[in-house]
Computed example of a mutant assay.
Amino acid sequence: MNFIHLRWADLDPNFHLRHSVYYDLAAQERVMILNSYGINTQTMKEQNFGPVLFKEECQFKREIHLSSKIHIETKLLNMKKDASFWVIQHEFLSEENKLHALIKVEGSWIDTLLRKIAKPVPTVVFQGLERFPKTADFEYI
């Protein structure tokens, strides 16, 4: 389990994690997982595709402070069978596994040349999302 290293600059005037930092941390976690499955910037540039977000929503449950030991569990919640649309869930958990925040991101893949949703998605995307960690209640939609 890798705990997040929070910075002083991540705090708001109430000395807890600033709301926008949750989104930044979730995005970094998501990108790291995608990279581990071959969906990286080099591949995206070569094959002219990239992720596009339709919705990003956070439910804040408990404060996170500078000294908090927090880790993020990132899993696929839903996905179309062709991997053209997906929902990724990020749980911000304490070392006692108490939920501090829940982010859900809905997205797809865009053809960066046509500036339209990529159909079909590149093979690397399909294979990577098939291997992506999934929630216990994951379902194809």
Rank of each mutant, 00 (worst) to 15 (best):
V87N: 02
F49I: 04
M44R: 12
F3H: 10
I103S: 00
V124S: 05
K55P: 01
F92N: 00
A136K: 13
N97T: 10
V124T: 09
D12N: 15
H100E: 08
L53A: 12
I103K: 00
L77S: 11
R7T: 06
L11F: 09
K80W: 06
I72E: 01
D24H: 12
Q89M: 08
F92I: 12
H19C: 06
E96C: 03
P133R: 07
A101D: 04
K75N: 08
I72P: 00
Q89V: 09
K134C: 05
M79S: 10
R115Q: 15
K75F: 02
Q42I: 13
H90L: 06
L66V: 04
M44G: 05
K55G: 02
I70A: 02
E56Y: 01
L99S: 11
E29T: 10
F138H: 06
A9Y: 08
L129G: 03
A101E: 01
L17C: 06
A26Q: 02
L76P: 01
K80I: 00
T135C: 15
P13F: 09
N48A: 15
H100V: 05
V21K: 07
R18F: 13
W109Q: 04
T135E: 10
A118V: 04
L76C: 05
L11D: 05
I4G: 03
R7E: 15
H71Y: 14
A27Y: 04
P51M: 14
E46W: 05
S68K: 08
S108R: 04
E46R: 14
W109L: 08
L93H: 05
N78Y: 10
T74F: 00
D12F: 12
H65L: 12
F126V: 01
N35M: 06
N14P: 00
S20D: 15
L99Q: 09
G38W: 02
Q28K: 14
R115H: 12
L102N: 11
P120I: 08
K104V: 09
K55W: 05
K61S: 13
N40G: 11
D10G: 08
Y37Q: 08
F3G: 06
Y22V: 00
D111L: 08
K80S: 13
Q59T: 11
K69H: 13
S94E: 08
E91K: 13
K116R: 15
E130Y: 07
H5V: 14
K98G: 01
E139K: 15
S68I: 05
E63F: 08
V52H: 02
E57G: 07
H65C: 11
F138D: 03
I70C: 02
T74A: 08
S20M: 07
I39H: 01
L34I: 04
F126Y: 14
F92Y: 07
L76F: 06
S67L: 10
F126R: 06
V105S: 09
Q89S: 11
F85A: 14
H19R: 09
P122R: 10
E73M: 07
D24N: 10
T74Y: 00
S84T: 13
N35A: 05
A118L: 13
Q59D: 11
P13H: 14
H65D: 03
L17A: 03
V124M: 06
Y22E: 02
E46A: 13
I70W: 01
I72W: 00
Q47R: 15
S20T: 14
N2P: 07
G107W: 02
